[in-house]
Design a protein around this nucleic acid. Structure first.
Length: 197
DNA sequence: CGGCCGATTATCT
DNA sequence: GATAATCGGCCGG
């Protein structure tokens, strides 16, 4: 196991988003280790990116993105969901990568307990708000350092995902964001089956 | 599987 | 006071 260090995150969000595919998201909760392979990400970078929360400038909520890379940006949306991002780029440059989906590896029982509606549907971690529920991630973890185990949440290096197994599309859910930001292909998806579980 | 719709509240104007 | 980087339920195919 090798925890991704600050140099990994100290790059443009586009590069980090691509390279996070195949890495392992780890949560330590109640003495248990929950983990999964990252299979879908989105890059948000700069105040000029009108899809990025930082496009409204520095506020209490977005301040974390202006800070040093390698920290968690966890925010609340739609009145009920927490979404997890990793802050990228040098301090002063607001950018982050949204973790949209993971492929569960360990701690499935704990994930099931963390999820409501556990008996329903198929995936527990195939959406940005589903995985935060499964991993018990909420606002308490906003701004924590992902480069150490201290806060119980970090990312480890993992499996290499070949370029041929990665597809790039427009980011999801930016319904009122103007072009070109709405359609710019800053979403990265690892093809199903590319992660050997 | 795909599309539509209501839920529910922190954050910002 | 309006909006939102979503989800699950319900419908039709």
């Amino acid at each position: 196991m090798s925890i991704l260090q600050r140099t990994f995150y100290n790059r443009p969000a586009l590069e980090v988003a691509r390279d996070l595919l195949g890495c392992r998201l780890v949560r330590f909760q109640n003495g248990q280790r929950l983990s999964g392979w990252i299979v879908e990400t989105e890059a948000y970078q700069g105040e000029e990116d009108l899809g990025c929360h930082a496009s409204a400038g520095k506020t209490h909520r977005t301040a974390v993105m202006y800070g040093p890379p390698g920290h968690a940006y966890v925010y609340f949306t739609y009145g009920m969901h927490w979404l997890l991002n990793a802050v990228t780029s040098r301090e002063g440059t607001p950018a982050a990568v949204l973790i949209r989906a993971i492929q569960p590896e360990a701690g499935l029982e704990a994930m099931a307990e963390n999820r409501p509606y556990q008996a329903r549907k198929s995936g527990w971690t195939d959406g940005p708000a589903k995985l935060t529920q499964a991993f018990d991630i909420n606002g308490d973890l906003n701004s924590i350092d992902l480069c150490s185990q201290g806060s119980g949440l970090w990312i480890e290096s993992g499996q290499a995902v070949h370029d041929g197994q990665v597809s790039q599309t427009a980011r999801i859910g930016l319904n009122s964001v103007p072009e070109p930001w709405r359609s710019i292909p800053w979403r990265f998806v690892a093809e199903r089956g590319s992660i050997h579980g």
